[in-house]
Protein backbone atom coordinates (compact mmCIF):
# COMPACT_ATOMS: atom_id res chain seq x y z
CA UNK A 1 0.00 0.00 0.00
CA UNK A 2 1.17 3.50 -0.86
CA UNK A 3 0.23 6.15 1.70
CA UNK A 4 0.71 9.92 1.28
CA UNK A 5 0.19 11.86 4.53
CA UNK A 6 0.17 15.65 4.18
CA UNK A 7 2.92 15.44 1.60
CA UNK A 8 4.27 18.71 0.16
CA UNK A 9 7.09 19.43 -2.22
CA UNK A 10 8.57 22.87 -2.68
CA UNK A 11 11.21 23.22 -5.40
CA UNK A 12 14.38 25.24 -4.90
CA UNK A 13 12.90 28.14 -6.87
CA UNK A 14 9.87 28.32 -4.55
CA UNK A 15 7.44 26.56 -6.90
CA UNK A 16 5.06 24.21 -5.10
CA UNK A 17 5.05 20.82 -6.82
CA UNK A 18 2.79 19.14 -4.27
CA UNK A 19 0.60 20.88 -1.70
CA UNK A 20 -0.64 18.89 1.31
CA UNK A 21 -1.42 15.65 -0.54
CA UNK A 22 -3.07 12.86 1.46
CA UNK A 23 -4.14 9.64 -0.24
CA UNK A 24 -3.95 5.84 -0.03
CA UNK A 25 -3.41 3.51 -2.96
CA UNK A 26 -4.09 -0.19 -2.27
CA UNK A 27 -2.09 -3.03 -3.79
CA UNK A 28 -3.47 -3.98 -7.21
CA UNK A 29 -5.25 -0.72 -8.03
CA UNK A 30 -5.18 0.86 -11.49
CA UNK A 31 -4.95 4.62 -10.93
CA UNK A 32 -4.83 7.39 -13.52
CA UNK A 33 -3.58 10.82 -12.53
CA UNK A 34 -4.85 13.66 -14.69
CA UNK A 35 -4.23 17.40 -14.71
CA UNK A 36 -2.63 20.20 -16.69
CA UNK A 37 1.07 20.17 -17.51
CA UNK A 38 2.93 21.48 -14.48
CA UNK A 39 0.10 20.62 -12.08
CA UNK A 40 2.31 18.17 -10.19
CA UNK A 41 1.47 14.81 -11.81
CA UNK A 42 5.09 13.96 -12.44
CA UNK A 43 6.19 15.12 -9.00
CA UNK A 44 3.53 12.93 -7.38
CA UNK A 45 4.51 9.82 -9.29
CA UNK A 46 8.25 10.35 -8.85
CA UNK A 47 7.87 10.87 -5.12
CA UNK A 48 6.82 7.23 -4.78
CA UNK A 49 10.21 5.82 -5.82
CA UNK A 50 12.05 8.90 -4.54
CA UNK A 51 13.29 9.96 -7.97
CA UNK A 52 12.09 13.29 -6.52
CA UNK A 53 12.33 13.96 -2.79
CA UNK A 54 9.51 15.49 -0.76
CA UNK A 55 9.95 18.43 1.57
CA UNK A 56 7.07 17.87 4.04
CA UNK A 57 4.82 15.09 5.27
CA UNK A 58 5.40 11.34 5.17
CA UNK A 59 5.16 8.91 2.32
CA UNK A 60 5.15 5.19 3.09
CA UNK A 61 5.16 2.23 0.73
CA UNK A 62 4.23 -1.09 2.40
CA UNK A 63 5.05 0.49 5.75
CA UNK A 64 8.49 1.74 4.71
CA UNK A 65 9.01 5.48 5.07
CA UNK A 66 10.43 6.45 1.68
CA UNK A 67 12.03 9.70 2.82
CA UNK A 68 14.36 7.97 5.25
CA UNK A 69 15.87 5.53 2.75
CA UNK A 70 19.52 6.03 1.87
CA UNK A 71 22.01 4.43 -0.52
CA UNK A 72 21.76 0.65 -0.57
CA UNK A 73 18.35 0.59 1.16
CA UNK A 74 16.92 3.03 -1.39
CA UNK A 75 18.22 0.96 -4.31
CA UNK A 76 16.79 -2.23 -2.79
CA UNK A 77 13.45 -0.45 -2.31
CA UNK A 78 13.42 0.70 -5.95
CA UNK A 79 13.90 -2.91 -7.13
CA UNK A 80 10.22 -3.64 -6.53
CA UNK A 81 8.95 -0.48 -8.24
CA UNK A 82 8.99 -0.38 -12.01
CA UNK A 83 9.02 2.85 -13.98
CA UNK A 84 7.86 3.63 -17.52
CA UNK A 85 8.74 6.90 -19.26
CA UNK A 86 7.22 9.01 -22.03
CA UNK A 87 10.32 8.71 -24.22
CA UNK A 88 10.87 5.00 -23.35
CA UNK A 89 14.42 5.66 -22.03
CA UNK A 90 15.96 2.66 -23.75
CA UNK A 91 19.51 2.17 -24.97
CA UNK A 92 18.66 2.44 -28.66
CA UNK A 93 21.89 1.21 -30.21
CA UNK A 94 21.78 -2.24 -28.64
CA UNK A 95 19.42 -5.21 -28.81
CA UNK A 96 16.01 -5.54 -27.19
CA UNK A 97 17.11 -8.35 -24.87
CA UNK A 98 20.13 -6.35 -23.68
CA UNK A 99 17.76 -3.58 -22.66
CA UNK A 100 15.50 -5.95 -20.76
CA UNK A 101 18.52 -7.56 -19.09
CA UNK A 102 19.68 -4.21 -17.64
CA UNK A 103 16.96 -4.56 -15.03
CA UNK A 104 18.77 -7.67 -13.69
CA UNK A 105 22.14 -5.92 -13.38
CA UNK A 106 21.74 -4.88 -9.70
CA UNK A 107 21.33 -8.54 -8.75
CA UNK A 108 24.39 -9.86 -10.55
CA UNK A 109 27.63 -10.67 -8.71
CA UNK A 110 30.02 -7.75 -9.14
CA UNK A 111 32.30 -9.45 -11.66
CA UNK A 112 29.37 -10.44 -13.84
CA UNK A 113 27.95 -6.93 -13.72
CA UNK A 114 31.35 -5.51 -14.70
CA UNK A 115 31.72 -7.77 -17.74
CA UNK A 116 28.02 -7.87 -18.68
CA UNK A 117 27.85 -11.68 -18.51
CA UNK A 118 24.31 -12.66 -17.56
CA UNK A 119 23.19 -15.98 -16.05
CA UNK A 120 20.93 -18.33 -17.92
CA UNK A 121 18.10 -17.62 -15.48
CA UNK A 122 18.37 -13.88 -16.23
CA UNK A 123 18.08 -14.50 -19.96
CA UNK A 124 15.06 -16.78 -19.45
CA UNK A 125 13.41 -14.13 -17.24
CA UNK A 126 14.07 -11.44 -19.85
CA UNK A 127 12.66 -13.58 -22.66
CA UNK A 128 9.59 -14.45 -20.58
CA UNK A 129 9.01 -10.73 -19.95
CA UNK A 130 9.23 -10.07 -23.70
CA UNK A 131 6.77 -12.90 -24.30
CA UNK A 132 4.32 -11.33 -21.85
CA UNK A 133 4.20 -8.12 -23.91
CA UNK A 134 4.07 -10.06 -27.21
CA UNK A 135 7.40 -9.11 -28.79
CA UNK A 136 9.44 -12.25 -28.13
CA UNK A 137 10.31 -12.42 -31.85
CA UNK A 138 12.07 -9.04 -31.59
CA UNK A 139 14.43 -10.15 -28.80
CA UNK A 140 17.56 -9.87 -30.92
CA UNK A 141 16.54 -6.84 -33.01
CA UNK A 142 18.17 -3.50 -32.38
CA UNK A 143 15.89 -1.12 -30.47
CA UNK A 144 16.29 1.70 -33.01
CA UNK A 145 14.70 -0.54 -35.65
CA UNK A 146 11.44 -0.84 -33.67
CA UNK A 147 8.34 1.37 -33.79
CA UNK A 148 7.40 3.59 -30.86
CA UNK A 149 4.77 1.18 -29.60
CA UNK A 150 7.20 -1.72 -29.72
CA UNK A 151 9.82 0.35 -27.89
CA UNK A 152 7.37 1.13 -25.10
CA UNK A 153 6.70 -2.60 -24.83
CA UNK A 154 10.43 -3.25 -24.50
CA UNK A 155 10.42 -0.76 -21.63
CA UNK A 156 7.45 -2.59 -20.13
CA UNK A 157 9.29 -5.91 -20.45
CA UNK A 158 12.35 -4.38 -18.77
CA UNK A 159 10.13 -3.41 -15.86
CA UNK A 160 8.43 -6.83 -15.70
CA UNK A 161 11.82 -8.57 -15.60
CA UNK A 162 12.49 -6.95 -12.23
CA UNK A 163 9.27 -8.49 -10.75
CA UNK A 164 7.81 -5.23 -9.46
CA UNK A 165 4.78 -4.94 -7.19
CA UNK A 166 4.13 -1.38 -8.37
CA UNK A 167 4.52 0.18 -11.83
CA UNK A 168 4.77 3.95 -12.16
CA UNK A 169 4.14 5.23 -15.68
CA UNK A 170 4.93 8.86 -16.53
CA UNK A 171 2.97 9.77 -19.68
CA UNK A 172 3.54 6.33 -21.22
CA UNK A 173 1.43 6.90 -24.34
CA UNK A 174 1.99 10.61 -24.99
CA UNK A 175 4.51 9.86 -27.78
CA UNK A 176 2.33 7.22 -29.46
CA UNK A 177 -0.44 7.33 -32.06
CA UNK A 178 -4.00 6.64 -30.80
CA UNK A 179 -4.13 3.00 -31.97
CA UNK A 180 -0.73 2.09 -30.52
CA UNK A 181 -1.60 3.99 -27.36
CA UNK A 182 -4.62 1.72 -26.86
CA UNK A 183 -2.51 -1.39 -27.37
CA UNK A 184 -0.03 -0.25 -24.73
CA UNK A 185 -2.89 0.62 -22.36
CA UNK A 186 -4.26 -2.90 -22.94
CA UNK A 187 -0.87 -4.25 -21.86
CA UNK A 188 -1.04 -2.20 -18.66
CA UNK A 189 -4.56 -3.46 -17.95
CA UNK A 190 -3.56 -7.09 -18.50
CA UNK A 191 -0.48 -6.76 -16.28
CA UNK A 192 -2.59 -5.09 -13.61
CA UNK A 193 -5.30 -7.74 -13.64
CA UNK A 194 -3.25 -10.90 -14.17
CA UNK A 195 -0.27 -10.11 -11.99
CA UNK A 196 -1.97 -7.90 -9.39
CA UNK A 197 0.64 -5.21 -9.91
CA UNK A 198 -0.39 -1.72 -8.82
CA UNK A 199 -0.36 0.60 -11.84
CA UNK A 200 -0.18 4.38 -11.44
CA UNK A 201 -0.31 6.30 -14.70
CA UNK A 202 0.09 9.98 -15.50
CA UNK A 203 -1.90 10.68 -18.59
CA UNK A 204 -3.09 13.57 -20.74
CA UNK A 205 -5.68 11.57 -22.66
CA UNK A 206 -8.75 11.85 -20.42
CA UNK A 207 -10.74 9.38 -22.54
CA UNK A 208 -8.04 6.72 -22.08
CA UNK A 209 -7.85 7.46 -18.35
CA UNK A 210 -11.59 6.99 -17.93
CA UNK A 211 -11.65 3.87 -20.08
CA UNK A 212 -8.79 1.97 -18.45
CA UNK A 213 -8.38 3.18 -14.87
CA UNK A 214 -10.53 2.06 -11.91
CA UNK A 215 -9.75 5.20 -10.04
CA UNK A 216 -8.93 8.74 -11.19
CA UNK A 217 -6.99 11.34 -9.25
CA UNK A 218 -7.29 14.92 -10.50
CA UNK A 219 -4.53 17.30 -9.54
CA UNK A 220 -4.38 21.07 -9.89
CA UNK A 221 -1.56 23.32 -8.67
CA UNK A 222 -0.17 20.48 -6.55
CA UNK A 223 -3.49 19.80 -4.78
CA UNK A 224 -5.79 16.80 -5.14
CA UNK A 225 -9.08 18.19 -6.49
CA UNK A 226 -10.73 14.87 -7.35
CA UNK A 227 -10.16 11.34 -6.11
CA UNK A 228 -12.77 8.75 -6.96
CA UNK A 229 -13.98 6.04 -9.33
CA UNK A 230 -13.40 6.63 -13.02
CA UNK A 231 -17.13 6.24 -13.84
CA UNK A 232 -18.08 9.17 -11.63
CA UNK A 233 -15.87 11.70 -13.38
CA UNK A 234 -18.27 14.27 -14.83
CA UNK A 235 -17.83 17.33 -16.99
CA UNK A 236 -17.85 19.46 -13.85
CA UNK A 237 -15.11 17.39 -12.25
CA UNK A 238 -12.96 17.73 -15.37
CA UNK A 239 -13.64 21.47 -15.44
CA UNK A 240 -12.38 21.84 -11.89
CA UNK A 241 -9.28 19.74 -12.63
CA UNK A 242 -8.44 21.73 -15.75
CA UNK A 243 -8.58 25.13 -14.03
CA UNK A 244 -12.27 25.71 -14.69
CA UNK A 245 -11.84 25.34 -18.41
CA UNK A 246 -14.31 22.91 -19.89
CA UNK A 247 -12.57 19.83 -21.27
CA UNK A 248 -12.82 19.66 -25.03
CA UNK A 249 -12.81 23.41 -25.44
CA UNK A 250 -9.26 23.79 -24.27
CA UNK A 251 -7.96 24.37 -27.80
CA UNK A 252 -9.90 27.63 -27.85
CA UNK A 253 -8.59 28.64 -24.46
CA UNK A 254 -5.08 28.10 -25.75
Amino acid sequence: MIRFEHVSKVYGNGVKGLDDVTLDIEQGEFVAIIGLSGAGKSTLIRAVNRMHGITEGTLTVDGVSVGELRGRELRKFRRKIGMIFQSFNLITRTTVINNVLTSRVPELPWWRSLLGIYRREDKIAALEALDQVGILDKAYSRVDQLSGGQQQRVALARTLAQNPSIILADEPVAALDPVTAKQVMDDFRRINREMKITVIINIHHVDLALEYADRVIGIRSGQIVYDGPADQVSGEVLASIYNGKEYGKMEDAG
Binding site: L74, R79, L90, R93, L114
Partner: peptide, 27 residues
Protein backbone atom coordinates in the same frame (compact mmCIF):
# COMPACT_ATOMS: atom_id res chain seq x y z
CA UNK B 1 24.51 11.52 -24.29
CA UNK B 2 20.78 10.76 -23.86
CA UNK B 3 20.37 10.35 -20.10
CA UNK B 4 16.99 8.60 -20.36
CA UNK B 5 18.36 5.09 -20.02
CA UNK B 6 20.55 6.25 -17.11
CA UNK B 7 17.46 7.60 -15.34
CA UNK B 8 15.62 4.35 -16.02
CA UNK B 9 18.41 2.30 -14.47
CA UNK B 10 18.56 4.52 -11.40
CA UNK B 11 14.79 4.10 -11.05
CA UNK B 12 15.07 0.30 -11.07
CA UNK B 13 17.62 0.35 -8.26
CA UNK B 14 20.99 0.34 -10.04
CA UNK B 15 23.98 2.21 -8.63
CA UNK B 16 25.28 5.26 -10.48
CA UNK B 17 28.26 3.18 -11.60
CA UNK B 18 26.10 0.43 -13.08
CA UNK B 19 23.80 2.97 -14.71
CA UNK B 20 26.82 4.64 -16.33
CA UNK B 21 28.33 1.34 -17.43
CA UNK B 22 25.15 0.02 -19.02
CA UNK B 23 23.48 3.13 -20.38
CA UNK B 24 26.17 5.74 -21.10
CA UNK B 25 29.07 3.51 -22.18
CA UNK B 26 27.20 1.87 -25.11
CA UNK B 27 26.39 5.35 -26.40
Amino acid sequence: VDMGAYEAMEALGATGFHAFLYSVVPQ
